[in-house]
Design a protein around this nucleic acid. Structure first.
Lengths: 205, 205
DNA sequence: CCAGATGATTGCCTTGAAGGCAACTTTGCC
DNA sequence: GGCAAAGTTGCCTTCAAGGCAATCATCTGG
């Protein structure tokens, strides 16, 4: 059972702490830059001990990746509730897009320096690890459910999940690296439509 | 200029050291298990200092990923020399397959325990990242060349490269997770054919 | 409502990773 | 042979990861 779904004071407090730690990490990154704060700073700002930080997140990057990972988990859920007759890649695209809408702008409109920090963050291998962790498996499960395949035995759901994450990474990389004048949602729709057509060679530039 | 292409005693020695470190890491993993050796052990076996290990590889996982990364770089080269009229995904599949043939069986036929170690290794996010690092860019360049797109400005080559790596990861995961009775090359051909058809939902089991 | 059980928080500690710096050694080249 | 460039090494500091046990908060059954 996912932590988000349970109730009770204890569970809610844990969730609050996790979110507080994640937010503190993001704030510190924006204030000081990615390399100018340590886990202890994050713990201090969230009002817990360093050891407690370790109980919640395996690394600074896990804390920074929390929001994104949360969104992808939500996307996996949403994928299950998309209409059954909807084409697979449309369902995947829409499931990925919806949590982006909800999230709004957590820290106000980003300044140029903030965008630069996010770009640096996304480029680090540690961040890539943090993003890969905890998300692929949820997607594999959801896709297996939807397509009636076996997540353990069949290659198919894992393949689709990997392709999905690969595509998402490409779009995110591109989004942060160039001027985000085009809305990410429309880029995502195009990309997944293109995948469902087999990614034919000459792109319409 | 890639390190592999240069000559001279100095360059050759560096290459030898790199390979010795990578091999030592793989041997140690098979002998002791993934979690039962440290970078210092690897350095000792390769006959260099720990500090030198750090000069060659950023992490234990980078050392373990060296062979695979080397193969992928070779695949990127091979992709450029595939016939121009060949469909893109066929060219990619064949370019990925060829280096696998050359490599043979580096450590003899793997035992069950060795397969288990490789499985554990491939499952770690650290390894997934080590695999993607240093290779994606080469693939992006090669794909951009082949498709006449701009690796900086266009989303297309990055998208295809990410999808390729994602698919390769899925196959590698599957390969070590189940009995490798089917040759990897034929699985790769099927997978990329399937991608070029848009990955239609019901897989032929 | 209370007392034991269960789970969370914390401090302490050990191990390992990462990488800057300067001394020293090897290779390349004239 | 000898100088310059590049590779290797030891030493060092900082940070990360996580086991263990004590303490504290929440939960649950009587």
């Amino acid at each position: 059972m996912p932590e988000e779904a349970r109730s009770g004071l204890r569970e809610r407090k844990k969730l609050d702490t996790r979110k507080a730690l994640s937010d503190a990490a993001l704030e510190l990154m924006f204030e000081r830059g990615l390399d100018n704060f340590v886990r202890e700073d994050v713990a201090a700002r969230a009002g817990v001990s360093l050891r407690t930080f370790s109980n919640y997140f395996a690394s600074k990057y896990d804390a920074l990746a929390y929001r994104v990972n949360y969104r992808i988990r939500r996307s996996a859920e949403l994928l299950r509730s998309r209409p059954a007759e909807e084409p697979l890649w449309t369902a995947i695209a829409e499931a990925l897009i919806e949590p982006l809408r909800d999230d709004g702008v957590p820290f106000g409109r980003p300044t140029d320096e903030q965008i630069l920090e996010v770009r640096k963050l996304n480029a680090t291998p540690e961040m890539q690890v943090a993003l890969a962790r905890n998300t692929i498996e949820d997607l594999v499960e959801a896709i297996a459910d939807r397509t009636g395949t076996d997540p353990k035995a069949d290659l198919y759901p894992r393949l689709v999940a990997n392709v999905t994450v690969g595509a998402l990474n490409a779009v995110l990389n591109r989004y942060v690296q160039t001027d985000p004048s085009v809305a990410m949602s429309s880029v995502l729709r195009e990309v997944f439509a293109s995948i469902s057509e087999g990614l034919p060679p000459p792109p319409r530039t």
